[in-house]
Design a protein around this nucleic acid. Structure first.
Lengths: 88, 88
DNA sequence: ATGTGACTCGGAGTCCGTG
DNA sequence: CCACGGACTCCGAGTCACA
């Protein structure tokens, strides 16, 4: 599974969890485009990720963290450690 | 500050912290493009974020979290709470 | 309500160079 | 070592028709 499919899975999981249809999200991005993202066909830009997360009602980092969980590479302890190293 | 500039700041901070030049990162993305990212002129795709983080030697989520810290919207407690809600 | 193909259009991403 | 420009290619992002 590549990162685009992982993002698509994360997007679909949150969207269905919120009980939203693809059509209801068309204010953030077109319905057809949302569909292609969920199938892992395209790689969204950071700006697009922000708009989609806003429409889902979650923080962009929530969507992105879930994405990397699908990739089985969301080792949050490693991330926390790396951030700590940067902050000093 | 918009998200592209925030990402640019995060990228530059980590790059300089690692003592890398823009030219040394040209294996992940062209030197000119790295420069334009750091100046907030373009919005990278998820795939590009992955390659850049790989070249920096950090997890993509580290780079992205630092990005949202520049936006002053990296409320990790909120993110953790949202993830917990998704997981049950 | 979603998937798909065909089609646009602007922007992501490239390489050439200059200061 | 980096900022910045122009010219270029390719794919992100959208619209429409139809299944």
């Amino acid at each position: 599974m590549d990162i685009n499919q992982a993002f698509g899975n994360a997007l679909r999981e949150i969207r269905l969890g919120k009980g939203l249809s693809q059509e209801k999200m068309a204010s953030a991005a077109s319905r057809v485009y949302i569909s292609s993202l969920e199938r892992g066909l395209k790689s969204p830009t950071l700006v697009t990720v922000e708009m989609i997360a806003g429409e889902l009602g979650v923080h962009p980092l929530t969507l992105l963290t879930l994405t990397y969980e699908y990739l089985e590479s969301a080792d949050l302890k490693v991330v926390a450690k790396e951030l700590k190293n940067l902050h000093k």
